[in-house]
Design a protein around this nucleic acid. Sequence first.
DNA 1: GCTCATTAATAAATCGTTTTATTTGGAATA
DNA 2: TATTCCAAATAAAACGATTTATTAATGAGC
Lengths: 354, 354
Amino acid sequence: MTLGPKNVTRPPVVKSGAAISLKQLAAHLELSPTTLSLVLNYAPSANSIPQETKDRIFSAARELNYRPNYLARSLRVQRTHTLGVIVPELSDGYSAMVLNGVESELSKQGFFYLTASHLHRDDLLEKLPQVLIERQVEGIIAVDTPIRFEPSLPIVNVSGHQEIEGVTNVILNHQHAAELGIGHLYDLGHRRIAVIKGQTFSSDTEIRFDSILKAARKRNISIDRNLRGQMEGESPSPEVGYHATKKIIATGEKFTALFAFNDVSAIGAIRALEEMGLSVPADVSVLGFDDIYAAAFHNPALTTIRQPLFEMGSLAAKTLLNKLAGKKNGSSKAVLNVEPTLIVRQSTAKAKIL
Amino acid sequence: MTLGPKNVTRPPVVKSGAAISLKQLAAHLELSPTTLSLVLNYAPSANSIPQETKDRIFSAARELNYRPNYLARSLRVQRTHTLGVIVPELSDGYSAMVLNGVESELSKQGFFYLTASHLHRDDLLEKLPQVLIERQVEGIIAVDTPIRFEPSLPIVNVSGHQEIEGVTNVILNHQHAAELGIGHLYDLGHRRIAVIKGQTFSSDTEIRFDSILKAARKRNISIDRNLRGQMEGESPSPEVGYHATKKIIATGEKFTALFAFNDVSAIGAIRALEEMGLSVPADVSVLGFDDIYAAAFHNPALTTIRQPLFEMGSLAAKTLLNKLAGKKNGSSKAVLNVEPTLIVRQSTAKAKIL
DNA sequence: GCTCATTAATAAATCGTTTTATTTGGAATA
DNA sequence: TATTCCAAATAAAACGATTTATTAATGAGC
């Protein structure tokens, strides 16, 4: 293991020099801006221009480090190659993962994006799309965010469940997810299952809960009223899962498994259970949702329903870019489904006989 | 707990209507664009214009939903109110936290930002600043990212350690951090301490390691060569900490405490230790770094050196905006220090007698 | 009745590109 | 010799705003 030279400051590779405009470059070459523009953009009409002139232009552009002003170009060609992305907030792992997928796709296609967080605030939910539109984004990707405006440009909503003209929703197959989760617990012998429901502001809250109830009913399991927890508060920390679980325990109702709304709340739930002297998974199995990074390395490692968040992000981006490319003709689906996966780790085990 | 109506699609609040330009609005009012511009921007020279006319303008703008085109305005006034932010990647919690702080400050001041990930790739490290500059960002915030270009605009580097003209580095007081960490372990009686060193591409790797050695030496502790682990590979998962720890254990050299490069690697380290039948903290104390969300809810909860990542992000943003505002005069410090905090949780305990 | 200031507005230039339409000089054609 | 065509380039308009300079009409002061 070599330590290597420390605090190396590599010589910068790119020389700077004040920005130079096309007009200045043209003056320098004693040519018109038109000619330079045609040549530099490989316009078809530039093939009447002799190679020698082209070479002069290219090499001067390189030497004087000419960089076209994207603002001016965008204004003229009416395309910004920029999207807006609206998320609840950046800190919660979920958004960051989706964003990661979005970025990976956009960067492939030369697009950039402006990020904005709405923090669940109504005023921002209304204002942010407006200011993004002022900034001439070509489309908007919303992540777990309610649409409070009439879309005047293409929109893809990750985990959106509203049916709105012009909005494509990228959503998880929740029925399948619930089948996987409840099926897994059922197969392990669990019959008394607690469920933690998400915050009211999460788009997936209702459908996830309903799907779970349905999957349970299918197996003749009913989720006792006392075993239904509710996540409350804004915090994106495990605390909300912790408190919800404490409340369930306080009812005295017995259960052998707990299906959390997501991994973060599952982690809080485990803490609450262990504080009460209950061991996971020996006494109670805990099932998470999402499969965030922390899930695999929690102790015990979380069994969870994986949402392909990165893929959902890149799918959203891909879809939006397609919408932009295929003007009009791409009537584009209103819903795109992605499939969940059951990831079995250490937080679930055979049910204890009550 | 009420379930509430499901799948509510609230009526959109903002009506759309195709975008209208200033010129069109002016035509509609039978006034010149100049007049509208002066009035709408509250220009001083507009106070000769009678209130009645102003009212007509304002109400027409509202009714026809006039939104100034930010591109056109930016081009004219030569300000974009946009920054570029370059991060290694988005998924790793660290960048997301810093970004969160950046955003919170920028949104206060009406700025937006374009995010770009360099993925530790040399070509991107050189290209990204260029394309951001083409897009007329007014400054760049780099996060844990080496500067490979001569700065032609204001730059703030979070966790940067290169001394470059025009670049302000926001850095943690590593000497203090090391004192806190080693001091804590020392006070618990630990004398044989393993240290996991960061990946070579992390800006903080060298200084953090050196500071730790120095703090140890000050207490007459030397860190055995066999107890120096190295994180290897690109992955932002705990796996790299896991493997580094396995290697240390394999040397057979005994130790009672381990100081990890960060929380993610600390989590991997704990897994490796437990796999070898060593209990944390009973047999080995593990100390993390950063205090990411997962730290508090890991099992055992991580004792860690907290970096105020959110604050570092907002400080970086604030500093950059100040640089932009105070043209020339703000000779602006080259280094801004922020202070670490020791957060004691459950992963450290009194040293076992060897 | 003349000058000057004020009010209410506008024309035109500008930001840095792209694009359409036009010009220029020479060579080929009839 | 006049016409047409082509190569090589340019002028000017446009994108949608802001800003500087200018105008036209009115009223005040002497």
